[in-house]
Simulated scan of single mutants.
Amino acid sequence: MKVVYSLRSDLEKDPARVLETQALTLNDARPMLGLKGSRGLFGSAEWWSNVESGVIDVAYVTGVIKELYVAGQERLDHPNEFELTLDDGGVRSEGILVDDPGLISEYVPGRRVRIKYAYDELKCPLPDGRPQYLDFVLEIAIEE
């Protein structure tokens, strides 16, 4: 499988995203917005270490690309979403993410895809008090 997207690479290209996310985590005036930060500030060395060691939960989703489409109201000349038929028979939609625009062509119906997610806790719990998590796409790999 060929890795077409890596969050680590994406964040290296956009350090402002990391700083903005971390600032919201650290903003006590917004107690219900942002990540909790109890396992490291998003994108920090501690955060990545906790992703790699399993302190931050990681999960994989695998399946076959069913179709590509344009989601939202933007007028795009290429698809920005894809539908995935999961190995368990379920269906999931995900945004088309790439490290390089030339890699969009790797998204082809019928190809297998593997998506790696990390789940980081949000400041705002669920209504019943249980923790709520945000999933981050860490990596997308597509069959060559």
Rank of each mutant, 00 (worst) to 15 (best):
R39D: 08
C124F: 11
P127T: 14
K13L: 13
L122H: 06
V113R: 03
I96Q: 06
L76R: 15
V18K: 11
L122G: 05
G102V: 04
G89D: 08
G34R: 08
G90P: 01
K13N: 11
W48E: 03
T85P: 01
Q73S: 15
E83S: 14
R114M: 05
G95S: 13
E67L: 10
G37L: 10
L103Q: 10
N80S: 14
S44G: 05
V58S: 03
L134E: 13
S9M: 06
L84H: 01
T62A: 10
S44C: 09
K2M: 10
L68K: 14
I142L: 15
E94G: 00
D128R: 12
D77S: 15
L7N: 01
R8E: 15
E46I: 11
V64R: 12
D14W: 11
Y60G: 03
M1G: 14
D57Q: 05
K36T: 05
L19C: 02
L24V: 11
F82Q: 00
G40F: 12
V91R: 10
K116G: 00
D88I: 04
S44Q: 13
E94V: 10
E139F: 07
V51G: 00
L24Y: 04
A16E: 14
G95T: 11
V91D: 00
V18G: 03
V4T: 08
D14L: 06
L7M: 13
V3Q: 11
V18E: 08
L7R: 07
G110Y: 05
I140D: 00
D14G: 02
S9R: 14
W47R: 00
Q132V: 05
L134I: 03
G90E: 08
G34M: 06
G40S: 10
L138Y: 01
G90C: 12
G89V: 09
V51H: 06
S6L: 09
S53E: 06
V64Y: 02
G102P: 00
I56D: 04
A71D: 15
E52K: 07
V108K: 13
E20M: 13
D87H: 02
L33E: 13
D135L: 08
I56Q: 04
G129M: 15
W47F: 07
N50F: 12
S53M: 01
M1W: 08
E94F: 07
V51W: 04
V58R: 01
I142G: 10
T85H: 06
D88T: 01
L19P: 00
L97I: 07
E139N: 07
N50R: 08
L19D: 02
D87N: 08
E52H: 05
E67I: 08
D120K: 06
N80A: 14
E12H: 10
G43V: 13
S38Y: 02
D135I: 05
E74C: 13
G63I: 07
P101D: 12
Q22S: 07
E144Y: 15
A45L: 09
L97M: 09
T25L: 01
R92P: 04
R111S: 00
R111M: 05
V58W: 02
A23H: 02
I104W: 09
P131D: 14
K123F: 11
R17V: 07
G34T: 08
E81R: 15
L84R: 03
L84N: 02
E20I: 07
Y5H: 11
L11D: 12
S93P: 04
E52Y: 08
D128S: 06
G34N: 02
Y69V: 11
K2L: 13
N80Q: 15
A118N: 03
L7P: 12
V113N: 02
